[in-house]
Amino acid sequence: MNFFRLLGDLSHLASILILLHKIKTTRSCRGLSFKTQALYVAVFITRYLDLTYRWVSLYNFVMKLFFIGSSCATLYLMRYKYCPTHDPSIDTFKIEYLVGPCAILALIFNYKFSVSEVLWSFSIFLESVAILPQLFMLQRTGEAETITTHYLAALGIYRAFYIPNWIYRYFTEGVVDPIAIVAGIAQTGLYLDFFYVYFTKVMQGEKFELPA
């Protein structure tokens, strides 16, 4: 564990808490993509299968359980409790275009051709693009509630912190994980446009609005 990874993980944790807080306080999941949340459930379940056969640390164990649990809870809240506030007509990104290519990539790029390793690779690739339905929705509506943008910013910052973490690990431990690094950099790249608007507008107290 190093400083960057810890900050990244805490930012990830914060993003989920912000998301649940938004749903609870506004009693609505307006502006949130159900598809993105469903993809995160798939990401966490396929990646954390190792919970059942590998012990890493208490920290690792608790965080994995939290990510699986909270993502399922979010999906439940969106699907049942606050279902009427969710508008499927603007959540139209075709997730087949994400899941299919990620499955193919995972079959090609993995560290061992076994069920658990291919699923791990799949989860890494899928996570890198899971935010696209959400960003697509934002693009379509052209604006977002401030709390939703805080959620997205925390999620993007989490990925951004993983990059210095890998650089640090390369120099201190000699560890290089090309699949995680390439997918992680791509994933962070997807947030750049969003970050630009977030830091120039939302952080200055303005509403998140995309230029027409």
Binding site: R5, D9, K112, V175
Partner: peptide, 10 residues
Amino acid sequence: TVDDRVKDEL
């Protein structure tokens, strides 16, 4: 190989 990947990351 499997040893290359960072198993302790989330």
